[in-house]
C-alpha cells in the first residue's frame, strides 16, 4: 500500500500514538494514506474508534512481532 507518510509511535503510551497520528493527519490532503506503527495495545481499538468518529477510513491493520501497523485514509 502506498503510504503518503509513516508515523513511528512505537514505545509510546496512550494518548501519544493518537496525538501524533492526528497531528500528521492534519497535514495530509483528503484521500492520502497515513501509516502508523505503534506498540501500545490499546491503540487498535482507539485508532479504529477515532477514525470512525472523524470520517477517516481505517483501510487495514496488522500485527507483527508486537508492532501494530495501521493504514488510514484521510476523509473529505
Amino acid at each position: 500500500m502506498n503510504s503518503t507518510k509513516v508515523i513511528d509511535a512505537k514505545g509510546l503510551a496512550c494518548p501519544m500514538p493518537i496525538v501524533r497520528t492526528k497531528k500528521a493527519m492534519d497535514e495530509l490532503a483528503p484521500g492520502e494514506i497515513l501509516e502508523v506503527h505503534a506498540t501500545d495495545k490499546g491503540s487498535k481499538n482507539d485508532l479504529t474508534a477515532w477514525a470512525g468518529s472523524t470520517g477517516h477510513e481505517l483501510l487495514k491493520s496488522e500485527e507483527e512481532a508486537g508492532v501494530f501497523k495501521f493504514w488510514i485514509k484521510k476523509g473529505e
Partner: peptide, 8 residues
C-alpha cells in the same frame, strides 16, 4: 468523551 476528541 473519548480523549481523542479532546486533543485540540
Amino acid at each position: 468523551i473519548p480523549y481523542f476528541d479532546l486533543i485540540d
